[in-house]
């Protein structure tokens, strides 16, 4: 048994060097050479400053922007996670009902609100909304920016990503990309 423990110790140390240091360093080296943009967080720059990442959602205020999904941690980049509300929790039902009422009020619509606009994402950092959720906000954004509705709708269509290979995942609109495109409309 003593011999086995001795081997165990040596094996742990040797494997730590191989799989815990050499392997991640090799992956980092290759990734930084061949895909530095993706490996460093798919960040977007505007006027020389970082304004975020294409992959990480951020919070938006005001009618002139498309808004992302509710976040259980207010888009805190260091606290990813969902609300973890269960489907029979009345606090959750109340929160969703409140958000739906608010969306109807601020957009002046009576249509039901797409669920992804009133239900919190899993990561709290979801960068996307559904095409329906974008369409729901289009008239409000167009009004606030004095843009023709058709132009805003055309932008949504341009920034809608389809399913991968036609069947994987869901169609979606990246909120940051769409809002940056709005800024270029002036």
């Amino acid at each position: 048994m003593k011999e086995q423990l001795w081997i165990a110790l040596k094996m742990t140390l040797v494997m730590t060097v191989l799989t815990g240091l050499i392997y991640p360093l090799a992956v980092t080296g290759v990734a930084q050479v061949f895909f530095p943009k993706a490996a460093n967080g798919s960040r977007l720059r505007r006027g020389g400053e970082w304004v975020g990442s294409r992959l990480i959602g951020q919070s938006w205020k005001g009618p002139e922007w498309f808004h992302g999904r509710p976040s259980a941690h207010n888009y805190n980049g260091l606290a990813s996670g969902g609300s973890n509300y269960g489907p029979s929790n009345q606090q959750w039902v109340a929160a969703v009902t409140r958000r739906a009422g608010r969306w109807r009020r601020v957009t002046g619509q009576t249509r039901p609100v797409p669920a992804d606009l009133v239900e919190a994402s899993a990561s709290g950092l979801d960068p996307d909304i559904s095409p329906a959720a974008a369409a729901y906000q289009a008239a409000r954004v167009a009004r606030a920016r004095h843009l023709p509705l058709a132009r805003v709708q055309a932008l949504i269509r341009r920034f809608t990503r389809g399913r991968t290979f036609g069947f994987l995942g869901a169609p979606r609109v990246n909120v940051l990309e769409l809002n940056l495109a709005l800024l270029r409309q002036r």
């Binding site: 969902g82 959750w92 669920a115 992804d116 239900e119 994402s121 990561s123 996307d128």
Partner: peptide, 11 residues
């Protein structure tokens, strides 16, 4: 439109 069960899910 993704349907109703989006709480805790990513679009």
């Amino acid at each position: 439109n993704p349907g109703g069960a989006m709480e805790g899910k990513e679009v």
